[in-house]
């Protein structure tokens, strides 16, 4: 098994493997790897996603309101995000 990635890196990688994902979906998918850590909070995940969006490696074009009327953002990776992953993803990790 490859080394555990830094959380932000792993989030970018996970988003690259799906068409789009909400913060909750990303947390659910990464729970087996990071779930026991103190940094595994919705606030931390939301901040990483907003930063990656601000750095133009994720997109947040897909939005809707959930049943409670709260904002639900689906993030997707863009070409620049894919380029970074292709270049810097450590060996042992596959980009799909």
């Amino acid at each position: 098994m490859a080394d555990t990635l830094p959380l932000r890196f792993r989030m970018l990688h996970y988003v690259s493997t799906v068409k789009k994902a909400s913060p909750d979906e990303i947390m659910k998918a990464l729970k087996p790897e990071y779930g026991t850590e103190k940094q595994f909070t919705k606030k931390v995940f939301a901040d990483h996603l907003l930063d990656m969006k601000a750095n133009h490696i994720l997109e947040d074009n897909d939005v809707e309101l959930d049943d409670k009327g709260e904002l639900l953002i689906y993030y997707s990776i863009n070409d620049e995000g894919r380029r970074l992953l292709k270049k810097y993803l450590p060996k042992g990790w596959n980009q799909t």
């Binding site: 830094p6 890196f9 850590e37």
Partner: peptide, 14 residues
């Protein structure tokens, strides 16, 4: 904040 592991993880990446 439970991020000490992140320091080593990050150092292993480019």
């Amino acid at each position: 904040a439970g991020r000490l592991k992140e320091v080593l993880r990050s150092l292993k990446t480019f």
